[in-house]
Design a protein around this nucleic acid. Structure first.
Lengths: 205, 205
DNA sequence: TCATTTTTGTACCGATCCGCATAAAATATC
DNA sequence: GATATTTTATGCGGATCGGTACAAAAATGA
């Protein structure tokens, strides 16, 4: 089903790669401030090709959000490897997040969703929905690990997996905002360590 | 010094009120997407008046950020009234934040700084600096209360006031993002309660 | 009353915005 | 090779952008 030859001129670019380049532009500038000229230059696609492949600017932006969401969920699933202790899992979640947030050309970019989609969320319903769904999916994935931790005895029976997951996410949301606000890696790593202690307890490791 | 009559035609508007109206526009739309036409309509000022009083769009936006920062610090100082128990202080901080975040005409707007300034932070250095400074000032104010709590015995001597303050802020940052993402008041209030428990311990109250 | 100073309103500026019309280029099918 | 179909490239077009020139309006000072 992948090589069903379509009639007509074949496209001379890789759509996934183009979305990746577009993501960089949106990440740095935000949805509104990113112009089609910026996007066209970054992807090496002229505007009609962009439009033909992805629709208008909002649709392209939603595609980049979706790609980021999937990548993030992959990083999260990897960090939450259940063969590792919970404490290490959460530490890896924050380390993975910071690796993404602190990667910027001029300034750290933080989280793509929180840094750019939140700004549009009031006016653009579809963007708000993607943002909300992404945050919830993230919470749920962590909650599953928390639930497992309770069953295994890594957390006391009295622990509330949902509440712990929301708070673990909250630390990450804060890292996302603070990274984009210019906080240093050292500051952010200290917050991450405090967060691990707070979620998993200080006694271990 | 207030009534030193200036020569020339007196301005027919209140600058503070105009900044307040402009803040609403920026809060809903973000800095880039808010047009001077939007701002002009909301403030009932034509563009030359806006420009004469506040400078260009970025300067006006920075003025609205500064006003929000001051208002927020006032709310924070009020919530942290040291004659109240720490647990109640933190609960009041979150309640005050949610009262601001959930006030929106169509959708909840979250935090003005986190929701709109973060998006511009990578490209606009001055906006990034205001955002970073605001977050730090907030942390510091909470840290002072945490320090007092240690001295009073509300928290154990082993508690780290700075780390606790950053985590307390982190919960608020998460509320800010989640509010703008569309989470319900009930969901946010549950997170706030969990946050209070996590910061102050579950035993009290 | 008249000159000076500041604000206000209209109208406009060049630049940029997003999207598309049109035609050439490159493939598959007949 | 001819036709159909899709992608590419150029360039435009109406709308909107942020900012300002200019003159009328409204105050003070002489």
């Amino acid at each position: 089903m992948k090589d069903e030859k379509k009639r007509g001129r074949p496209r001379g670019f890789d759509a996934k790669a183009a979305i990746g380049k577009a993501r960089e532009v949106f990440w740095d500038r935000g949805f509104t401030a990113a112009s089609l000229d910026n996007l066209s230059a970054a992807t090496n696609l002229n505007r009609p090709s962009l439009y033909g492949a992805f629709g208008d600017k909002e649709e392209l932006y939603l595609d980049t959000l979706e790609g980021y969401r999937e990548d993030s969920m992959d990083v999260l699933a990897d960090a939450l490897d259940p063969s590792l202790p919970l404490r290490e899992n959460i530490a890896r979640v924050y380390a993975g997040a910071l690796a993404i947030y602190l990667h910027g050309e001029t300034a750290a970019r933080g989280c793509f969703l929180i840094g750019t989609a939140a700004a549009e969320a009031v006016q653009h319903v579809r963007i708000r929905e993607v943002l909300g769904r992404s945050l919830n999916d993230f919470d749920d994935e962590i909650e599953n690990r928390m639930q497992l931790a309770v069953e295994r005895g890594e957390l006391p029976q009295s622990a509330d997996p949902q509440a712990l997951a929301k708070l673990a996410s909250a630390v990450m949301h804060s890292l996302a905002v603070r990274a984009r606000a210019g906080d240093s890696r050292e500051t952010l790593e200290a917050i991450a360590r405090s967060g691990v202690d707070m979620i998993c307890g200080r006694e271990q490791g």
